[in-house]
Amino acid sequence: MVSICIQSPGRMTTVQDSGRPGYQRYGMSVSGVMDAHSYRLANLLVGNHPGAACLEATLTGPEILFNFPCTIAITGADMDPRKNGQPVGLWESIDISGGDRLSFAGLKSGCRTYIAISGGIDVPEVMGSRSTCLPARTGGMEGRVLKQGDELPLGKGKAFSDHLRFLFEEDRLQVLTNPTLRIIPGPEVRRFGFEGIRNLLTSAYTVSQHSNRMGLRLSGPAIPVVNGTADIISAGISPGTIQVSGDGQPIVLMADRQTTGGYPRIAHVASVDLPLVAQVKPGDTLRFREISLETAQSLLREQEERFEYLAGRG
């Protein structure tokens, strides 16, 4: 069997793909990668289909032993990747021979690293996806984070043999420790008064330790509810929703978010900026700037055109 062997899992490494939509009405989280930008480009660099499963490593990287030749790409957070101990680059194709060992010397920037391997990680699909949903213990590798000794099967061959081999600076995700995120007002924005909204749009909010793939808890100047109650009738949550909990502190909801929630939805992070949220870690800070729905969608279209151009560049 063509597979990779996990020699050491790193702090929290999971198998992820583009997610498992379609079951949210049953309370099933979408899951999938936190940083769709880095994930998509990693797959491009190894000639995979855009939805192929890869590894998502958090804060520290895994050590992986390869038993056959393949192509890999590493994107997202810089964890100082090494092939057989020698530094290798991010955002480029790396040729691997049987017996090669990939490791990471330590986090230099960002929070989550993506490792794409030609053929893709071929764990069984569960409900149409290979992504790991940790809260439901479903999908990926037995519904859990990787552990030492795991053998992960790989898909056969590359989808595209004549693929992109490197990316210019401008196409890489620029990971930041203090990004300003573009947001769109949410359905319950009117529950918050002038002061609270001013706080949200002018202050820095610190990412708390209690942040994970479900969401990032932030702390900073309070955003009080002034009209109505601090709870809403439980309702749907879209990716990047910013909820404000009873203590006036915002929470940004991410890949493993619950499908419904009872806190007011003050705003939503624009899809193009969600990868920046995926790359901040506890102690980093976030700021927010308002844009319109139309602007958010046109930014997404521009990015998509660029990705499609890159996919065709080969």
Partner: peptide, 16 residues
């Protein structure tokens, strides 16, 4: 995707 709840229906779409 859709998320029906007590008093609303969320419709998730691909803006592209």
């Amino acid at each position: 995707d859709y998320i029906p709840s007590y008093n609303e229906l969320m419709v998730c779409y691909n803006p592209l």
